[in-house]
Each structure stands twice: as C-alpha cells, then as structure tokens.
C-alpha cells in the first residue's frame, strides 16, 4: 500500500532521511517509532506529496508521490503533528469545511466517523480552539477521515494528549483498521508501539529495524534484568560485569556481559520496545 525505495532528504545542513526503504501492506496499522528529530515528519510529508525527496521513489496506493500527486491527494487523509484545524471555527464548521474541501458531505461518510464524532458532538457549537487536547485530536481525526481515505497518515497524533485520551485514540485506530483503511502513524511514545501491527524504529533519519513488535522483542539478544534504583549511578555503571544499564523510572534495566552480579537483587524481565530501541541505537 505504501512503498518507499531508497528515499533520502536533506535540509540545509541536516540529513533528515538517509536512504530509507519500507513497505506497508494494505489494511495494516503501521507505526513509525522514534524520538524527536528522527525524520518521521519529513517522511510523512514526502508520502503526502508535501515535500520532494532528494532521491528515491515512493508510492502510496500505487500512485507515485511526485508524478501522481493530484490523484494521491484525493485518496489520503493527513493529520499533521501540530493541531491544524481552524481554531476560530466551531467543531461543526470545521467538519463541514473539510467535507467541502474533499467535495463530499458529512452525511456521505458519517458511518466512518460516527464513533469518534459522537464523542465531540455535544460540543459541536464550541470553537475548536477551546477544546481540550483529546477532543481536538478527535476532531482532527474526524476531519481527516471525512472523505473516506484509502490511507491515513497520522503524524504524532497523541503528542501532548493526556494518557486516557491517548488510550481512547488508539482504540479508535484499531476500529478504523477494521474498515479496511491503511494507517501509518508516527509516535515518540514507545509504549504505543505494541498497539501497531508492525513498526519501524527510526533514529537520525535511519530505520533501525522493521518488524512486528513481538518479533522485535523476541529478537532482543540478551537476558534483561530489572533492579530497584537505590544504588548510586556510578556504582552501577562501573561494575565490571555490567554491559548496559539504563534507568527506567525507578528501576535499572541491566544486561550483563557473562554472569550476573550475585549480590544485587535482580529480576529477569521481558524487554519492552524501548529496551529494544536503546539496544539498537548502540
């Protein structure tokens, strides 16, 4: 559904994307996971025909993002990272406007957004700028869906949204997937990665790995241990048996070169995507 071949892109001094290749299948919920500045937004803008790549090809739904950009723009839904609706228009007016943008009406595809829009409908006469973060995202998603796109691009949709709304948002995405819409979503939150069918880990314009979350976790090369972070940082770091140590909240996540340090109170744990990411970044 989305096919990226050797895409590179640089801005004045920064290489934003370095020779990226990627395939996303039809009907997939695909996550691009990486910290700020990894190149996620640049990649999304190239796929939505907003930016031109320096080299390489990309196609969405069989349409070249450069040559067929006009037709492409009919078939995709795009939700940029920043809240990009009209703050001085009401919820309803925003939706009406975006329906007009895509030459459709709210009624025509209402079934698609019904679940989402129902939640914000009580506030439909409220200006979009006065909505909470979670409601803004729901409205933005409704607007991006109003023309029943074949592919949906969501650039960091949950950034700046409270945890409850984030959870709801992902539930909505799973429901949309059942409608047959291919969804590409980027996020800096590692915990959201497991909610995707497949993910690509991205760092400094490069893809570290592309696989299902389960496979990525299974491919973690070492045994991972957890220890309460009561000891001093230096003491943990300088222990000769320790290979890697990272602080995750109130716990250390540790791997050892060969044997474990017997005096420490350790518990073997399943690695998270974040552990995998950190491991790949080395």
């Amino acid at each position: 559904m989305i096919s990226i071949k050797n895409i590179s892109k640089h801005y004045k001094t920064v290489e934003a994307l370095k020779n990226i290749s990627l395939e996303v299948n039809e009907g997939e919920l695909f996550g691009i996971i990486g910290p700020d500045g990894a190149g996620k937004t640049t990649l999304f803008r190239i796929l939505t025909s907003l930016l031109l790549a320096d080299s390489g090809q990309a196609a969405v739904d069989g349409l070249d993002v450069v040559r067929d950009y006009k037709e492409l723009r009919r078939r995709i839904g795009y939700m940029p990272g920043r809240f990009s609706l009209y703050q001085d228009l009401t919820v309803e007016e925003n939706l009406h406007f975006f329906a007009a943008v895509f030459n459709t009406t709210i009624e025509e595809n209402y079934y698609l957004i019904e679940d989402i829009y129902k939640q914000i409908e009580p506030f439909k006469t409220r200006r979009a700028g006065k909505l909470s973060g979670g409601m803004k995202q729901k409205l933005a998603l409704s607007c991006a869906l109003i023309h029943k796109p074949r592919v949906l691009f969501l650039d960091e949709p949950t950034t700046g949204v409270d945890p409850v709304s984030r959870k709801e948002f992902w539930e909505m995405l799973r429901k949309l997937k059942t409608q047959g819409i291919t969804i590409a979503v980027s996020t800096p939150y590692m915990d959201e990665a497991t909610l995707c069918d497949r993910i690509a880990l991205m760092q400094h314009g490069e893809l570290l790995t592309i696989d299902t979350p389960a496979n990525i976790i299974a491919a973690y090369p070492k045994k991972l241990y957890r220890m309460e972070a009561t000891m001093k940082k230096e003491e943990v770091k300088t222990n000769p048996k320790v290979e890697t140590c990272f602080l995750f909240g109130e716990y250390w996540h540790l791997t050892f070169k060969n044997d474990i340090e017997p005096t420490w109170k350790l518990k073997e744990i399943q690695p998270t995507i974040e552990d995998c990411f950190v491991e790949k970044m080395k």
Binding site: I76, Y78, N103
Partner: peptide
C-alpha cells in the same frame, strides 16, 4: 503559520 495550509495542500483543493 497555523499549519492549516499543510492540510489544505495535502487535499485535492
């Protein structure tokens, strides 16, 4: 500036 142009550009308008 508000980013709405980005959405409009990515649409068939």
């Amino acid at each position: 500036e508000m980013g709405t142009m980005e959405v409009l550009l990515a649409s068939p308008v």
